[in-house]
Amino acid sequence: MANKDLKKYWKENLRYLFFLLAVWFVVSYGCGILFVDDLNSIRLGGFKLGFWFAQQGAMYVFVILIFVYIRLMTKLDKKYGLDV
C-alpha cells in the first residue's frame, strides 16, 4: 500500500480511537465517579442514576464500544483493501 494511504488509514483509525475512548471515559470516570453525586438525584426505577452507571451502565457501554469498534474497523479495512 502507498505510504500516503497508510497515513490516511492510520489517521482515521486514531480518530475512531479518540472518539470511542472519550465515550469510555465519560461513562465510567464521568458518570460513575466524578459526577456520581449529581446524577444520583435522578432516578431510574429503583436505581439512583450515578450508582447505576457505576455498577451496571458503564459495563454495558464498554461492551457496546468494542462491538462498534469492530464494525468501524471492518469497514475501514475494507475501504483501504486491508481486509485480507
Partner: peptide
C-alpha cells in the same frame, strides 16, 4: 466484597471490565 462496600465496590466492576476496552482498542 461489593456487598460490604456498596458503591465503593464499583472500582472492581468498572476497573476489571473497562480494561478490555483499552485492550481491544490499543
Amino acid at each position: 466484597l461489593i456487598s460490604f462496600s456498596g458503591y465503593d465496590g464499583s472500582v472492581y466492576l468498572m476497573g476489571w471490565t473497562g480494561g478490555y476496552v483499552l485492550l481491544a482498542l490499543l
